[in-house]
Design a protein around this nucleic acid. Structure first.
Lengths: 340, 340
DNA sequence: TTGAAAGCGCTACCAT
DNA sequence: ATGGTAGCGCTTTCAA
C-alpha cells in the first residue's frame, strides 16, 4: 500500500505539501501540484479512508435507515428506489451509502440500540418511512448526525424532510374521476393513521370531493396491501352500494380492490373505476391497467442526497420540507382509453 | 466524545488494559475487566470506528455491488431482498453493508473506476448478478478484498459463489407439467445467454424434457421482462402451434406471456399452461395465479453474509459454490386447483 | 497481569 | 509556497 509519505519521499517534498496538492488546497505552486498529481496517478496512489476519517472526523458515508419490513416491501420496492437514487448521486461526490434496517424493538429502544449510529459510522442519516416517530427522530438528531426524513415529517417541529406531493397528486387524481368521468360517489381506501403519505393522499381526495360538492366516503385499513385493499373495497360497497369509483391509498390496495370487484362480477371500469397511487411497475399489468400517480423515486433520492450534502457543507440552513412533484398516469382503470 | 483514555484515567489504569478489556482479550484480571466494562457502560462509551479501522486495517464493512439497472429491478426486487438478508445477518456481527451500483462504463473500465473499492472502504465485497464478467471479478479479487459472487459464478476457475438451485427448481417445475398435467409439448422461454441463472433453468427444463422422451423447444430472448416474455410467447406458438405449456425463465416473462395469450383469446390454464420462476409477490395476483418456483432470497443473503465472515476470519478456505434450495409453488396457471 | 509507547495514514496548525 | 510536527483514537508489541 502506497501512502503520501511514499509520494513525498519520491518527490523530495513534505507530506504536508503532498496532502495539500491532493486535496486541492491552496498553498502549492501549480507545477509542484502537477508533479504530485502525476506521481500519484503513476504510482496508483489511493488515500487511506480510515486515516482521513480519523483525522477529519468525517466518514463520507450516509446511512439509509428504514424499517426492516419496508425494505424491500414485497409489493413495492419504493425505498429501494429511493436508496438507489441516493447512491447514484452520493457516489458522484465521493460519498458512500450504508443500509441499516431496524426492527420494531430497536425502534422502541431508540438509537442507543443501533451501534452503527452510535459509533458514528456515518456523517449523516436518512430516516425513510413513516415508522420513525418524533421521539426517535429527535434522539437521532441529538446524536449529532445530520438527519433527514424521507416519506415522513414532523408535524410541529420544523425538521428537514423530503416528500412526494401526495396531496396534490391525490387531488388531481380524484379530480380526474370527477371532471372527466363524472363520478359522484367516490370512496377513498385509507391506509393507517399516522402514515403521513396516506394522510396527505386522503386530504387531497377530500379536497377534490369537497370542492365538487360531493360527499366524501373514507374507508379505513390497517395496512396498504392487496389484502387490505380487497377487504376495504368490500366494506366500501357494502356501506354505500351507490359507489362507482374508488381511490386507493396506493396501487397495491387498488389491485386488491380490483380482485374483489372481479370476484363479484363487477365490470371495470364500466361499473367501477378504481385508481391507485405510486405507479408501481405491475400497475401497468393490472386488468384493466391501472390509472395512478407516479412518484419520481429516483429524483426523491437525488434530492435527499443533495439536501444532505448541502447541510454537511453548511451551504444551506433553512427550508424544512421539500416537496417533489408527482404526475398523473392515465391508463384504463379510470375509464379512459377503453378502446385501446 | 469519550475515549478509552477517559476510561483509563477514571480507573487509574492504562489505555492498553482498557482496550484489552473492551476487546475481550486475555491478560486482564476478571475484576478489573468488569470494572472497565461497567464504567464503559455507565459513561456510554462508544469506540471510534475510524481509529479502530486505522490501526487494525479492517473496516467491518461489506460492499454490496450490483449493476445499476438491477437495483432495484422494477419488476422484481430480487437483489434488494438479498441485500436485505445480508444486512440483517451482518448487523448481528457488527458489520455494516454499503450499496455500490455500477454502470456499464464502470464495468468496462474495471475496478479502477470505483473509488469505494480502491480506497478499501470495505473488507469484503459481494458481486451480485450476472453482469460481472470473469475479467472484472478477478481484478476485484486481486484488489485484496474478500470477494463473493451471488447469482453468478465462474465456470472454470473455482471461485466462492452463492446461487439458488435454478436447475433443480426448473427440473421439478417442468416435471410437474409433464407428470401431473401430461403435457408433451412444452416450450422454454430462455433469457439472455451468459446469465447463469437463466442457463441453469434452461438446463433443468431440458433435463426434465429429455428424461420424459419429449422434444425440447427453446425460444430465446434478449431480456427477461414482461415485454420479452410476450414476444417470446408469440414466437413459440408460431414456431410450434401444438405447444400447450410454457416454462418461462422468470415470473416477469411468464406474466408477459400470459398477457399475450389472453390477447389471443387462449384460455388459461385449459388451453395453455404457463409457469414462471422466482415467486415474485405479484405472481400470486396474476390471472390465473402463477405456478412458479420460490427462491429464499433472504436466506441467500444470510448465507452470503456467513460465508463472507467465515472467510474474513479464516475459519474456512474451501468450498466454492453454495447452492440454496428452491421450492415449487403450485398455483393455478399450471392447471392445478382449477376449482379454487 | 499491567503499562509504556510506537505506530496506523492523514490533516492541519504553526513556522519559516 | 513549503516544511515540521502534533495529534485523531485505537491496537499491539515489548518490557516490567
Amino acid at each position: 500500500m502506497i501512502t503520501i509519505r511514499d509520494l513525498a519521499e519520491q518527490l523530495g517534498v513534505s507530506v504536508a505539501t503532498v496532502s495539500r496538492a491532493l486535496n486541492d488546497q491552496l498553498g502549492v505552486s501549480p507545477e509542484l501540484r502537477q508533479r504530485v498529481l502525476d506521481l500519484a496517478a503513476e504510482m496508483n496512489y489511493r488515500p487511506n479512508v480510515a486515516a482521513r476519517n480519523l483525522s477529519t472526523d468525517r466518514t463520507h458515508t450516509v446511512i439509509f435507515m428504514v424499517h426492516r419490513r419496508r425494505f424491500p416491501a414485497a409489493a413495492d420496492p419504493f425505498y429501494s428506489y429511493i436508496m438507489h437514487g441516493m447512491e447514484a448521486s452520493l457516489s458522484l461526490e465521493g460519498y458512500s451509502i450504508m443500509l441499516l434496517t431496524v426492527t420494531d424493538e430497536q425502534l422502541a429502544q431508540g438509537p442507543q440500540s443501533l451501534p452503527a449510529l452510535q459509533e458514528k459510522r456515518a456523517d449523516a442519516v436518512v430516516l425513510a418511512g413513516p415508522e420513525f416517530l418524533p421521539g426517535f427522530i429527535l434522539s437521532v438528531a441529538r446524536l449529532g448526525l445530520t438527519t433527514l426524513l424521507v416519506d415522513n415529517a414532523l408535524r410541529e417541529t420544523p425538521f428537514p424532510a423530503v416528500l412526494a406531493d401526495n396531496e396534490g397528486g391525490s387531488r388531481t387524481l380524484t379530480d380526474h374521476l370527477i371532471k372527466v368521468h363524472g363520478h359522484t360517489h367516490i370512496a377513498f381506501l385509507q391506509g393507517p393513521k399516522g402514515w403521513i403519505s396516506c394522510e396527505e393522499r386522503s386530504a387531497g381526495y377530500q379536497f377534490a370531493v369537497n370542492a365538487a360538492g360531493l360527499e366524501s366516503h373514507i374507508v379505513e385499513s390497517e395496512d396498504t396491501t392487496p389484502e387490505t385493499g380487497q377487504d376495504a373495497f368490500l366494506r366500501a360497497i357494502k356501506d354505500r352500494p351507490e359507489t362507482t369509483a374508488i381511490v386507493a391509498s396506493n396501487d397495491a390496495m387498488a389491485i386488491g380492490a380490483m380482485r374483489a370487484a372481479r370476484q363479484l362480477g363487477i365490470k371495470m371500469p364500466q361499473e367501477m373505476a378504481i385508481v391507485g397511487f405510486d405507479n408501481i411497475f405491475w400497475s401497468a399489468y393490472a386488468d384493466p391497467s391501472l390509472t395512478t400517480v407516479s412518484i419520481p423515486t429516483i429524483e426523491v433520492g437525488r434530492l435527499a442526497a443533495r439536501l444532505l450534502l448541502e447541510r454537511l457543507y453548511g451551504t444551506v440552513t433553512a427550508s424544512s420540507r421539500t416537496i417533489v412533484a408527482t404526475q398523473l398516469v392515465i391508463r384504463n382503470s379510470c375509464g379512459c382509453m377503453e378502446a385501446a
